[in-house]
Computed example of a mutant assay.
Amino acid sequence: MRIRVLVVDDSGFFRRRLTELINGDSRLEVVGTASNGQEAIDQVRALKPDVITMDYEMPVMDGITAVRQIQQIRPTPVLMFSSLTYEGARVTLDALEAGAVDYLPKNFEDISRHAEELQKILCERIVVVSRSGPRRRPVPVSGSVVTPDERAAATPAPVSASNTAAAARRSSPRGVQLVIIGASTGGPMALQQVLTALPANFPLPIVLVQHMPGTFTKAFAERLNRICQIGIAEAVDGDVLKPGHAYLAPGGKQMLLEGRPVMRVRVVDGDERLNYKPSLDVTFGSASRDLGGKVLGVVLTGMGSDGRDGARLLKAQGASIWAQDEASSVIYGMPMAVAKAGLVDEVLSLEKVAPRLCEEFS
């Protein structure tokens, strides 16, 4: 059975172009189009699509409002189209918080200059989005600091028996000096949920690797810094890692870690042949050289297997690896890869990651 897609955009040309590309894949079928958010809501009710592609700026009702209402009426995976600008990043993060699963550049030349490759990337992303797990209500971002009441309201209640097997084989990461957290699809809101739950006096530095374009990471770091109690910034080459602070790898770059004489960040261009910039494998691998068993690696939701090879290097040096469970992952790819490779010490639902970090280190 084909995946049924609803295309939403105020540009007739863009709707036609998307429809051509999507219908050119035998796995997919465009079942309807809409020119604004209100039409999209009406079409969702009538057509019950499997996936929605959504523009942001439209008349009558914008894309973010539409996404939010659709998730209330009939939760449906949404792929947003975004401009690769600082303002586009802010809008896209709002859309992800509203319930969108993933995003792509609206300027197709930012994806690929070749029609066949463009169609492959677009259609594969739609297929992946169609398989996404349950959308979870993120922590609010309305204020400069998240209150305990807001956090309690935004965090799902713990599942009492979901981690019984993992709990039985916990390996306490003694001597850890650094936490590295990596994610891809679904990661921005997962990271937001974890980081907003950490206290200002969290005793370790944290390094964050999120697959994102270079124009997005600065806006994402600023957003997190505004709503979290720990300090968060986009990493700069030479940053010395401090407790109670998190450092987000810049998009389009690779982030390396040094442990001598102090822990610091190195930001480099990296090899163009690598699929991900930043790559969790690269950051994990660099940490294994100087820090080894002093690292706790945490692999969250995301498609692909980035992090598996780096986790293997860390494990060889005595490090501990935690992974998000399938039930709470938007895309169970990256955490599944490390779990299937036998590299995981503990499997956790998303809502339990921050409490476990606090339990272990605070």
Rank of each mutant, 00 (worst) to 15 (best):
D110E: 11
A339K: 08
Y332P: 00
G285V: 01
M1P: 00
I22Q: 03
Q254H: 12
P173H: 03
E346D: 08
D25G: 07
G318W: 15
E109N: 10
T19H: 06
I111K: 00
Q192I: 05
A168C: 06
V299T: 03
L296I: 02
S35C: 06
A157Q: 10
I126K: 05
E124D: 11
G88V: 10
A354C: 06
A323V: 12
D110S: 09
V159Q: 12
R136Y: 14
P138C: 15
Q324N: 08
L280P: 15
S83E: 12
P278W: 08
G175D: 11
V67T: 15
G292Q: 05
N275M: 07
A46L: 15
T65E: 02
D50V: 13
V78M: 09
P188Y: 09
Q324R: 06
D281S: 08
R312V: 10
R266S: 07
V141T: 10
L21Y: 09
L118K: 00
S83T: 13
D55H: 07
I22W: 09
G251L: 13
E346H: 12
H211S: 04
S26K: 12
A166M: 05
N275A: 08
R137W: 06
S172A: 09
A311N: 03
T147M: 07
S35E: 14
S329P: 04
S83P: 00
R260Y: 07
A316K: 13
Q324M: 11
K340W: 04
V265A: 15
L204N: 01
V139I: 15
R260M: 04
P75R: 02
R74D: 01
E360I: 14
A183I: 11
D239T: 08
V295E: 12
R264C: 12
L208V: 15
M80T: 11
G307H: 07
I41G: 03
Q317M: 15
E109L: 15
E117M: 13
K253L: 09
S130I: 05
I230Q: 00
V91W: 02
D306G: 03
G318C: 14
V240Y: 13
F14I: 15
V145A: 13
L280R: 04
A235F: 13
A311L: 08
G63F: 10
P134K: 11
I22D: 03
P105S: 00
